[in-house]
């Protein structure tokens, strides 16, 4: 089994560089503060396997000013989101059409101390992005259950100007990179939603069925952050959905009854996002468990295998 010594080697190389950790958590904290306190505007590109798009961001913050942010896709269809104080006010139709009946739970704030439990923070050096000097901070996963992240943080403001998601082989899974950034407050008109931006309404909580599920095993550091339920896109079945996160990475688990249909297990990868479907036998018939998230395939597979309905557990 060659992978074990390989893993030990990797771990060893991570442990050999503890000095930069403090500096790293300072940079991470500065990032969290910057997005809360600074106004800026800019354009960035997002790239993953098979997709490349360009976007604008207008971000207003500061003392006595409501935190207001507008994001707009510049090519193709005009995807748009407007947030006020972290709450989505409106989104273009296609960006929120899967959220009917969904309930949104408050997000965990970026917590450098907590993250350093699962990621080693390593300062890699300096770089230049969007014409600005940046420091490079790597978040190296301490286990095989999450991907690595490379952040290029603006030296002047602490904002992330470039963000790379990298797997355990060092392969790039996705890139977000600013091409231009200004630290002026955006013009108010640029923060106003366009006509295509529809108000996002959240339905009532229907958590009973989703809570009928739990996972026997979770990757370390991940905890349940949201439970929703909605109709299957293809049938009338109710699909339970649970969302788990470690403060950075996130995955959703969908449970849909099969009602005797013969369906094979599948696994596939879409850029940074993996999807693994596994059939699970329960007392009430077979259920297809699908794990979707920005986690390694093996981890998703293991989560899918570990889902249990509470009815089964009680037996």
């Amino acid at each position: 089994m060659r992978f074990i010594p390989f893993g030990v080697l990797l771990l060893g190389s991570w442990l050999a560089l503890p000095a930069a950790a403090d500096e790293g958590s300072v940079m991470l904290q500065r990032l969290a503060d910057a997005e809360r306190t600074l106004s800026f505007q800019g354009t960035f590109v997002y790239e993953r396997n098979g997709s490349f798009s360009t976007h604008s961001i207008w971000h207003q913050a500061g003392e006595g000013v409501a935190l207001r942010e507008r994001l707009l896709q510049l090519d193709g269809s005009a995807q748009e989101v407007v947030r006020v104080d972290g709450q989505v006010q409106c989104a273009s139709g296609a960006l929120a059409d899967q959220l009917i009946d969904s309930q949104l739970w408050p997000a965990r704030a970026l917590n450098a101390e907590q993250l350093s439990e699962w990621y080693e923070l390593r300062v890699l050096g300096k770089s230049r992005v969007a014409g600005r000097a940046t420091d490079v901070l790597a978040l190296v996963p301490r286990d095989q259950h999450r991907y690595g992240i490379e952040l290029h943080l603006d030296q002047q403001t602490g904002l992330p100007l470039k963000s790379l998601l990298v797997n355990d082989k060092g392969q790039l899974l996705e890139r977000l990179q600013f091409t231009q950034l200004e630290t002026d407050a955006p013009v108010p008109s640029n923060l106003e939603p366009s006509a295509g931006c529809r108000p996002v309404r959240l339905g009532p909580v229907q958590a009973q069925a989703a809570e009928a599920w739990r996972s026997d095993w979770l990757p370390p550091g991940f905890s349940l952050s949201s439970v929703t339920q909605r109709r299957s896109p293809a049938s009338d079945e109710l699909v339970a959905c649970q969302v788990y996160g470690d403060g950075l990475a996130r995955f959703s688990v969908f449970m849909e009854p099969l009602r005797g249909e013969a369906v094979e297990d599948v696994r596939t990868q879409l850029g940074p996002t993996v999807a693994v479907s596994r059939r699970l036998k329960t007392r009430d018939g077979d259920v297809m468990v699908t794990v979707v998230g920005e986690i390694p395939l093996g981890t998703a597979e293991r989560v899918a295998l570990s889902m249990r309905s509470l009815g089964e557990v009680a037996q």
Binding site: I57, D97, Q98, S102, P106, L176, V243, S252
Partner: peptide, 20 residues
């Protein structure tokens, strides 16, 4: 899409979940 949208709408952690 549901996974991506839940992430994009429920967090205030910047542009990445939105872009996904």
């Amino acid at each position: 899409r549901q996974h991506a949208q839940q992430a994009a709408m429920s967090t205030s952690e910047g542009a990445l979940p939105y872009a996904r």
